[in-house]
Design a protein around this nucleic acid. Structure first.
Lengths: 210, 210, 210, 210
DNA sequence: TATGAATGAGGGTTCATTCAT
DNA sequence: TATGAATGAACCCTCATTCAT
């Protein structure tokens, strides 16, 4: 109506709306990860975001839709960063693998991520759409990257040819477990991520190197 | 609770009560693992157990208490089986490790277990008592066993001395991930457990053998 | 379980339940007719019935289902009474018609009925199921009775043969209009039902007699 | 409201405002008659009128006020048309009565009218002001006209003197019932208005003619 | 001991109304 | 004047828990 052309949101109104949307997602991320999906009250989300309860429905269709957007906004950047890294990297496959896992651990260092992943796992059974979305957008893309790194190593003679056949979960499992662990058992026996990461990478390399 | 020691209940009344209690726990296990904690209705549990809804409250204080008892009752046998095996085994540390992991995978083959573990993870934040119990009774005991196996291997010269320092999660992570995986992503990319297990064991041995 | 046979509800429990059900229907009838379907709050129905809000859902599936039951319980007896009368009546067709309309007006004298019918009309557009149910169970059965009375009169030579072809709404319309009228315009120009009824019957007979 | 007398607004501004007001009323009429008062959302009305939701409140105080204005604006023309006809007519009272009813049925042929009347009936209990307005402006004026026609017929010797005493609802009821009927039971047993109308007029004349 | 009817707090969602732009 | 984003009260329905039988 007023904007001369619809260039990427420049109006005050549009910026406002985008900020609101982000605020709601942030608030929802906190609430969901602290309480789980079902136990989270939209009242609480609204309070955290400093808005009225009805406002949420101006931006999201339902609680489930909000949850999806939370996952999207939070995990997409990580996935995209990992992909970008791969393209620009020059160096040995071992070095690349090291960097890749290191990135992975850094991402998990964001305190919002582990609880989010734990929650997704917990709710996956009752929300197959979430599981599916998570697999397609995050898991399978991550695995593709890792697969390419290993192929590179096999071609260059750094890794044993059998590495190409491995279930990649064998390599990545410790990352996920470490985050879950510190979430649940930090009190009893915390994992020191720095040390754990080094052991993990060495462990993997020893298993797949020629 | 009331018995001076936990001698086996022998009266007809006590047996009857114990059977009822077990029936409720079984029904609750099914319900919880299929629907998650919050989504499970005690009505449903009562129906599955073939009793009235109010009866549940004669045996358990609350839904949360029931959940805790379900976890306890279900995981105890697993823990006990693992400990028993170790004591009676004779053979190389590699063989023992193989058997240990194999047992582990077999336990996870019980279709009730993976959803239970997933659920525990999902609800752990809101049930610290559960997380704590899970750690003390299952995780730490399980790790102790694994630690002893590795020690034996290091002593016998089969495994590298550094193996004694490893975070054991690096070794066991793939087991847990495999169960979670098949729970969530069976549709998209199922893991063949038999093959996966062999790769896993070989992977671990290659990493820790001298 | 306990009753030796399932004879018509004799247990205290069953009587209780039946009484509850009736109490809810009565309360709902009042609320619906005073406020309309949409504007009626189940909270209010519960208060009027002197029960908790959740109790309604032990007896009815939903607000709509409750509405249907209200219509059923309230209008079925009237319909059935009219049918019974017809079978037992001996006398001229004019007399029968007179009695039939008289019964009709008596039924409408029940202060619950007119508002109920007005409400059904008002909500019919948005609840076709209600309209359909109302037609099948009340309207068409009422018309069948009236049709038989007229046939009898034509056969006996009291009524003109063309009467068999008449839209019956021409005969019954004044009954319905009178109830609606006194509902809406009692203040401005009330209809005296007794006088109105006599005029109506005379009016109809004059129009259809030979 | 503000104009000293209700002279036709002539300024450009006033015309614009009047057009907007009319557009809203038209949109609201559609919405109300299709969905009923409570179920109609002002969002929907605004969309139909092609304006913003807030704009409605520049022209009407509330949803209820809008409803009243819709009824007023829609029914005024009908009332006025009926009155005009009478003054100019020359012919027998029977012919005049025929024309009068015929006009009535034509007015009801406007597809907006029957649902509006049904809705008024349905909501009348909660909107006494509407009922009152409806009576004063439409019903009583309409009855006055009919009363004059009958008087003329009695004076001319066409109609029986008792016709002057009749409740006029006995004569007009079938018109209203026919519109309600086709609204609710068109599916089950539609009324053919043309045939129905002829039967109705003949029915009435047979009842009141000498 | 066992039941299941009753309760009522609680939550997701809707929508008339307000108000900053 | 016109907009539409924001609000929050309201409402239907659920379900853990209680309690009379």
């Amino acid at each position: 109506m007023s904007a001369p052309m619809d260039l990427p949101k420049t109006g005050k109104r549009e910026l406002q709306k985008e900020a609101r949307r982000t605020a709601i997602i942030d608030a929802a991320l906190d609430a969901f990860t602290q309480q789980g999906f079902t136990a989270t009250k939209l009242d609480d989300v609204a309070d955290r975001a400093g808005i009225g309860k009805g406002t949420i429905y101006l931006y999201f269709d339902s609680k489930e839709n909000l949850f999806e957007e939370v996952v999207r906004q939070t995990l997409f950047p990580i996935r995209d960063a990992a992909a970008a890294r791969l393209d620009s990297f020059t160096g040995s496959a071992s070095e690349l693998l090291t960097v890749h896992f290191s990135d992975f651990y850094v991402a998990m260092g964001n305190p919002k991520i582990p609880p989010l992943i734990a929650m997704i796992s917990g709710e996956a059974l009752r929300f197959p759409a979430i599981a599916s979305f998570f697999y397609e957008e995050i898991i399978s893309k991550s695995q593709a990257i890792l697969r390419r790194i290993i192929s590179r190593g096999v071609e260059s003679g750094e890794f044993r040819p059998e590495a190409n056949e491995l279930y990649l979960q064998l390599l990545t499992a410790p990352v996920l477990i470490s985050t879950t662990w510190n979430l649940q058992f930090r009190e009893q026996a915390p994992i020191e991520i720095e040390k754990y990461m080094q052991m993990h990478i060495e462990f993997v390399l020893r298993a797949i190197k020629v």
